[in-house]
């Protein structure tokens, strides 16, 4: 469904690439957590999949399309097959819940009858029945994120990309939101969720791809947030998995807490690292 083959992305005026020969394959119907500190390349990964950015080198295939050869006028077609959810919800403040979700269909030219049928269905899926006429500021953060998710899936995309969707939410609400994403995943939608919510990753035991400084440090099915033993030394990064959905086995060994040791000489953006380190090792 999504294939990254030795993808490198360097932003102008930076010394270190945001992504450094990343190879990754996500199968249809998978649920993947992408973890890593701020600046590790999670968002760049998602933006590349949307063709919001173009890689410096390497090949990206999304939903059967080679993004390098995809002409600009076909990019909207690609994005219609990908739903996106953000940390900051990005709802339109002057439109109601219904209108926010309907907007995604209106701007791609769907008919009024399709909108009247699909939008209430989708709102029911995300658990917002009866709140169609509310404005975003009248909703809680969790409800706003549900609206954003409804907007992302209303056109029934094959892929849902979530960029730290629980970043603004309290732990209990975060669990609800991921449970919702899990339900959407079970109906066949491929989900890639960037996060640094340790608890969620450890609870769900999905496939975990850990990025650090733009490189894949770990690609593990049924992984935890940070497992010291799973750190693969430099140069021996695991090849992209090609198996299908990870089986949901009960009784997995619990994840060992703690961050993998930082290698000497590695420097990242310091200011944003501190809280995450403490969050992980608390």
């Amino acid at each position: 469904m999504i294939l990254f083959d030795t993808v490198t992305k360097s932003y102008p005026r930076t010394t270190r690439p945001a992504l450094d020969s990343v190879s990754l394959e996500v199968e249809r119907g998978e649920f993947v957590f992408v973890v890593g500190q701020s600046g590790s390349g999670k968002s760049t990964l998602l933006r590349l999949a949307l063709k919001e950015e173009v890689p410096t080198s390497g090949t990206i295939l999304v939903a059967g399309r080679d993004l390098a050869t995809l002409p600009d006028r076909k990019v909207p077609q690609l994005r219609r097959e990908i739903g996106v959810v953000f940390q900051d919800f990005r709802l339109l403040p002057n439109k109601t819940v219904f209108q926010n979700v309907a907007f995604a269909l209106q701007v791609i030219g769907k008919s009024r009858s399709i909108i009247r049928q699909t939008v209430p269905e989708t709102l029911a899926t995300v658990g917002l029945e009866g709140k169609e006429k509310r404005l975003p500021h009248e909703l809680s953060g969790g409800e706003q994120q549900r609206v954003a998710i409804a907007r992302a899936i209303v056109n029934k995309p094959a892929i849902l990309l979530a960029d730290e969707p629980t970043g603004n939410l309290d732990p209990a609400t975060s669990i609800d939101i991921v449970a919702l994403l899990d339900r959407i995943n079970r109906s066949g939608t491929t989900i890639v969720m960037a996060t640094h919510d340790e608890e969620i990753v450890n609870t769900y035991r999905k496939r975990v791809v850990e990025l650090r400084l733009g490189q894949v440090m770990r690609d593990q099915s049924r992984g935890g947030y940070g497992i010291a033993s799973s750190v693969v030394p430099h140069g021996e990064r695991p090849r992209p998995r090609s198996s299908g959905m990870p089986p949901r086995e009960p009784g997995m060994p619990p994840a060992e807490p703690g961050m993998p040791p930082r290698e000497p000489g590695e420097t990242g953006p310091v200011t944003r690292q501190r809280p995450e380190v403490s969050e992980v090792t608390r």
């Binding site: 909207p76 690609l78 219609r80 097959e81 996106v84 995604a104 701007v107 791609i108």
Partner: peptide, 17 residues
């Protein structure tokens, strides 16, 4: 920019935007 950003994300054509 918020509207147009969302339009872009959900795959509205350039003409529509």
């Amino acid at each position: 920019r918020r509207e147009t950003g969302i339009m872009r994300l959900v795959g509205a054509s350039n003409l529509t935007i």
